[in-house]
Simulated assay, not measured.
Amino acid sequence: MRLTADDFAAYVAAHQTALLRFAVVLCGDRHLAEELVSDVLVKAFERWTDVATADHRHAYVRRMLVNHYISWQRKWARQRPYGDEIVDCAVSDRAHELAERDALLAGLRRLPRQQRAVIVLHFYEGLSTDETAETLGCRPGTVRSHLSRGLAAPRIDYTQREAPDA
């Protein structure tokens, strides 16, 4: 099987939008997401023979994206306080929807990178616990633990914010 740059271009045309949406949800910043996707697609092109011969190309590239995001966070965690990114949001008449979206993204930003990756893979991408564990290279029990802890944190913060003033 001869793999060409045209094969790679076809893959990018078919999956770039999905990868960008996934990256935005994963990292909470559109500009950073574009940079992550760009970096990962360069790496995928360099390893295109390995990527193209994988059973599930998109899953392979998505895992590359998660790994790159996690390693990027490790690299820059010492230089930037965690969770200080601001998500660009347009203000419109759908204020309630945007407020809920902002609260959800803020909750995701406060989570440690592994918990965020698990929640995004499980709920946004719709992967099962086993598929999420396989994507992240960990055990299903670890995924369940990250899910439980990740889901508990925003819920606690949300209930404290909704408490009536005394």
Rank of each mutant, 00 (worst) to 15 (best):
A13G: 01
D84G: 15
H122E: 03
T53W: 03
D130E: 15
P164Q: 06
D157H: 10
T159R: 14
A18E: 07
Y11C: 00
E85V: 06
L151R: 03
T53N: 04
R47N: 13
H15Y: 07
F8L: 08
Q160R: 14
E131R: 07
R30S: 07
R110G: 15
A99Q: 11
V12L: 02
Q160G: 13
L108C: 00
G83K: 03
N67S: 11
R110T: 11
V91K: 06
A44S: 01
P112C: 13
V120Y: 00
R94V: 08
L121P: 06
Q79V: 13
V91N: 08
R2K: 14
H96R: 15
T17A: 12
R57E: 01
V25E: 11
Y11K: 09
E34R: 12
R2N: 11
R161T: 13
R139A: 14
R47C: 12
M1H: 11
F22M: 02
I70Q: 06
T135M: 00
E134V: 02
T53C: 00
V51D: 05
L36G: 06
D88E: 15
A166P: 15
F8Q: 08
A13P: 04
H58V: 13
G141V: 01
D29M: 05
A133D: 05
Y124V: 05
A33H: 03
D88F: 12
Q160T: 10
V42A: 13
A9F: 10
L26Q: 01
H122M: 08
A13N: 04
Y82G: 15
A99V: 07
A59Y: 07
I86E: 12
A59T: 10
P164F: 04
F45I: 10
D55P: 12
S128K: 01
A95H: 10
S92Y: 00
A117C: 06
Q79H: 14
L127Y: 08
C27D: 04
L104A: 09
F8N: 11
V91S: 09
D29Q: 04
C27Y: 09
V25D: 02
A103V: 08
T129G: 03
S71A: 12
A152S: 02
V37N: 02
D93N: 14
E46L: 09
Y158V: 13
A9V: 08
R74M: 00
G150V: 07
Y82D: 15
Y124K: 09
Y124F: 11
L3T: 11
P112Y: 12
H56P: 09
G141S: 05
E125G: 00
W48V: 10
H122W: 07
C138P: 01
T49S: 14
T53I: 06
F45A: 09
L36K: 07
W72C: 07
R109P: 04
L121V: 00
Y60Q: 11
K43H: 09
L32V: 11
Y69G: 01
R78W: 01
Q160I: 12
